[in-house]
Design a protein around this nucleic acid. Sequence first.
DNA 1: GTCTATATGGGGATAGAC
DNA 2: GTCTATCCCCATATAGAC
Lengths: 231, 231
Amino acid sequence: MNIDRNSAIVNMNTREKILETAERLFAERGFEATSLRHITTEAGVNLAAVNYHFGSKEGLLREVLKNRIVPMNESRQILLEKSRFQSQDGVVSLERIYEAFLRPFFNIGAPGGDSNGLFLRMLGRISSEKPGFMKGLYQEHFKEIQELFVAAIGEAQPELSREEIHWKFHFALSLMLGSMIQRQRLKFSSNGYCDPDDIEGLIQHLIEFICAGFRSAGQPKSNFKFAGIQP
Amino acid sequence: MNIDRNSAIVNMNTREKILETAERLFAERGFEATSLRHITTEAGVNLAAVNYHFGSKEGLLREVLKNRIVPMNESRQILLEKSRFQSQDGVVSLERIYEAFLRPFFNIGAPGGDSNGLFLRMLGRISSEKPGFMKGLYQEHFKEIQELFVAAIGEAQPELSREEIHWKFHFALSLMLGSMIQRQRLKFSSNGYCDPDDIEGLIQHLIEFICAGFRSAGQPKSNFKFAGIQP
DNA sequence: GTCTATATGGGGATAGAC
DNA sequence: GTCTATCCCCATATAGAC
């Protein structure tokens, strides 16, 4: 039943044990730095089982990611539809759109107890470690959901050009991943002013920051004269 | 004289050859995934030279980063001081502050011809690969420059609380790194609407997005009622 | 400072018995 | 499906000759 992902790893079958342990170790140490031997030892299974069940180390990674990403994107879609249903005219506000986009991302570990956001750090890390791999992942898992959200943003901010929407969407996505990857830095760089473990606060600050960015003029070249300083 | 970093690697001494090649390979493939053998083979030097000159693989990494970061931060400080001097009352606008902060970051490779931003991808990657290592790097190289810029932001936006400034500074930093790490994604995710190789456009869009975030209310909890949707 | 040679330990993957 | 045993590759680091 998989009630508590952190306990009773004994009661899982070999395949599940490997997935469970691999996810944790990939997140903690990175993909390259984690060996199959390390995974199988911690999981208490045989080394050869990985290749039997997943074909290769990369096959294992693909499965680990898929198990998290698919429910996350389903959740995003449901939240967006719910907000659209609750709206007056079918146009969802930017805040609601990004709440639907961000919340499942930060809850991706729940209810598995991934309160440290290890999985999210892994996702960000993989995206910089293996760009080719991520491109495939994008085509398979993120293309559709992105089109859905880009369309919703276009309805919420109809004055934005397609180019502007894509720039800003890219920034929002980069910020979401970056702020999670870099989250531990906030601990020692804010001199105690901010608590990086306050996920709810993080989400709210992020929504505010992102929506402000989407509402900005969108014409920086004409609105703002750059100094043209040479470094 | 080091006129062109990409040519005449033959004319460099062993230490420089190693630094040159290591920087490129760390950036292209990541730290863990790059072997000393690979570096020394491409550089055309002996394997043992790395340990002789840098003590260890991590010592080599430290030196590679230092060679880029120190000039970058000097450049940031100079740009900020120049903008302060040019201002009427010593208060620099947010746009100028972030231009001074961002431009040396994106020009970090120049005039070395790092037009692909490989070094920046490496920096972001290392920060997720080796958090402990980055903490040391932060203390050594980034603490001072951050305090300088946080102070300038506090003067430009005096109504922001310390907590808000640190959140937003963290976001801006995460976005800067994230947008560089994820830059290649923009190629295939924007359907051709945006050109990720247009660094000048990237800088201008970033400044606009970040400054809008800094000018947003700063009190999301009271200004915006969250839906409280459960995923 | 630079080389060869090697110590020492790990890596992913697989063949074949059970 | 799971195991043992092993192939073959690569890693970092160092000792010691030149």
